[in-house]
Design a protein around this nucleic acid. Sequence first.
DNA 1: GCTTAAGCGAGACGGTACGTCTAGTCTTCAT
DNA 2: ATGAAGACTAGACGTACCGTCTCGCTTAAGC
Lengths: 208, 208, 208, 208
Amino acid sequence: MNRPQGRTGRPRSAEADRAILDATRTVLVELGWGKLTLGEVAARAGVAKTTLYRRWAGKNELVVDAVADLFDEHLELPDRGSLRADIEGVVRQFAALLDRPETKTALMAVVAESTRDEALRERIRSAIVDRQKNLVLLGRARAQERGELPYEPDPVLAARTADLIFDVIAGAVVHRTLVSAEPVDGEWARGFTALLVGGLAAAAGGSA
Amino acid sequence: MNRPQGRTGRPRSAEADRAILDATRTVLVELGWGKLTLGEVAARAGVAKTTLYRRWAGKNELVVDAVADLFDEHLELPDRGSLRADIEGVVRQFAALLDRPETKTALMAVVAESTRDEALRERIRSAIVDRQKNLVLLGRARAQERGELPYEPDPVLAARTADLIFDVIAGAVVHRTLVSAEPVDGEWARGFTALLVGGLAAAAGGSA
Amino acid sequence: MNRPQGRTGRPRSAEADRAILDATRTVLVELGWGKLTLGEVAARAGVAKTTLYRRWAGKNELVVDAVADLFDEHLELPDRGSLRADIEGVVRQFAALLDRPETKTALMAVVAESTRDEALRERIRSAIVDRQKNLVLLGRARAQERGELPYEPDPVLAARTADLIFDVIAGAVVHRTLVSAEPVDGEWARGFTALLVGGLAAAAGGSA
Amino acid sequence: MNRPQGRTGRPRSAEADRAILDATRTVLVELGWGKLTLGEVAARAGVAKTTLYRRWAGKNELVVDAVADLFDEHLELPDRGSLRADIEGVVRQFAALLDRPETKTALMAVVAESTRDEALRERIRSAIVDRQKNLVLLGRARAQERGELPYEPDPVLAARTADLIFDVIAGAVVHRTLVSAEPVDGEWARGFTALLVGGLAAAAGGSA
DNA sequence: GCTTAAGCGAGACGGTACGTCTAGTCTTCAT
DNA sequence: ATGAAGACTAGACGTACCGTCTCGCTTAAGC
């Protein structure tokens, strides 16, 4: 009864949506970003190309959405009891996500494209980046409750610091994985966490 | 005498090489990685496609070389008197490099491709990454001479730490610039440097 | 009252039929046969594609019907007093019909299609060709009444001759208009009529 | 040595041309005009679509050239000794050509398209129509030599008459074959020829 | 100075994918 | 049941690049 606008005609198939996103991930794994073809995705999804183009403007948009699903499913922040453990946990989790063949190439590729495409950048931000950033905010709030970090009264400064921490964590993990092409193993995760926690403590102590 | 094999015939034109790399950078700026075409580069360089393919295997290899030139010209580490100043200097320098339109997209794109192409990864490492990493080694050596950082006797551990610092610096700057899409201004550079120097100091103190 | 079968539900709109045929002719004029699209016709007629497909099997059938209407309206054979005048009249009339933009292309196109489609050929025959052929029969009957042509006692032979005359008249006009792409002006019509009447007279005299 | 213009680059393959035209005829026979696809032709010819598009602008142009070859090979006018025999011969020859599956649909279809495309009309004229018309001119010249037809001193009038005869012959055969969809058998050919020769004789006698 | 082999510009070649368009069918809601 | 709207499968369209090839011409090293 409550079709908001004068909606008419056959509704879009939700099944098609799912099949397309699943096929996209499968093709990413098998062929990689470079050889991923919208025609191939459509064929694998058992769907006509037009159906795909009706929903996504192109390869970039499709892949962002397909990858974003993974971030939804695999990023969370259980309370591990200390700031150090929380950071190390999120580092490992993010590294595990980046290690999947469907995210590895795809993520960097869409980021590369996004430098020339404002709409794409916005889509990446809302679908992927903001969800990660929320983990940082949650982690800090917990650390503040535990007394590990001081409360920052100035909201602007607080936001800036959160952004900085986010760039440091995500940037380091991405760089280690993709550019240095070395694994994020337990040792590296511990070393990195130590460095970061040390820096945060120094900043907290220094400002105290 | 020292033509290794029986080399004869017309030698390759050095001018063509230069024209091709220049054209590559120009096209990167104007069209971006995604729309860069080898045919277009050849046309701009006033060169036949064959000439281009005789020297580079494809788009990826060509762009790596074209961008690597920029890293050669624009990355250096003058002694700024303190570890903190050296780090902040290199952060700004690298950020300025990433802000150029020809590096912005290109760098991430070739890194994305390199996840599926071992040879390309090696080429990126030798042409770009290692040169940056040397700056880290040089900066640490200077800081050790100044007494700001302790000498690490274990060479394996020393290498690991250098790698970690490199991933943190480069990763944070890249992430800030490309993913968060926010500028690396003076404030951010100071904040980041403070965090990193604090962490390094804590590690040095903690191990002392 | 008299709904032959158990007909129920909403009856078909006669208005829709008319709108579709009108739209078909309009589109034929504007875009020609080649670019005529059933979707476009439906849109212009303010009708859903389904409605159109419920009534016609495809583009060919639709166009045949749309064009047949014109033949109904514009072909007739008033008694002009002599065989020669009757032939010249029908030649001019048919030429005028072929000169319309909606028939010009359409007629040849459906004829071309009909070479591979028996049902279409039959539809063209009953909707268009037979109506033209009747004019030939009528003209001959009048000429026989006037004494300009002898009566042919053998009905088979009579039918054959009528077919031949029909192919000569219609074929010549069509060929002149579409293949030679020259106008059927008064001079041509007179010349052609003279040739045909001469031939008929010779045949009548020869058999006498 | 004598490359007229500054000709450079790899020359076009004559073999490709031949393979494409052969494939076009094959596909015309198997699938007919309506289902003929440039992609299919290219595939059958063992040639890339681009190669085909480099030479022909589209389906119409290609088919005209493919069919024109047949007219070159199969239309000739041996001297059969009399005007009547020459006409009957050319009628049978042309009918035989139209009866081939590759010409039947194709010829009418391109003629239909040509009503909206001046360039295509010109191509049809020069590739097909003019060659047929030459047979008419040749036949008349022979008949004049034999004394069967008078010489026409006015060249304009002579040309008009030739055009008229051409439209009558070609039009009648085409109409019989495609529209009436009846065979051009010996009886029809004789009847038609008698009618035309009678008309020509009457005209010649009338003007004498 | 002549030979000779590679380099060179040009552009055609077989391919692959693109993103769009049309055909004809199907599904939904409203009449 | 019919109608309007519009999503659906299927597949051709004509274009753009890819990386390779075939031309005829140019250029230097080595005889």
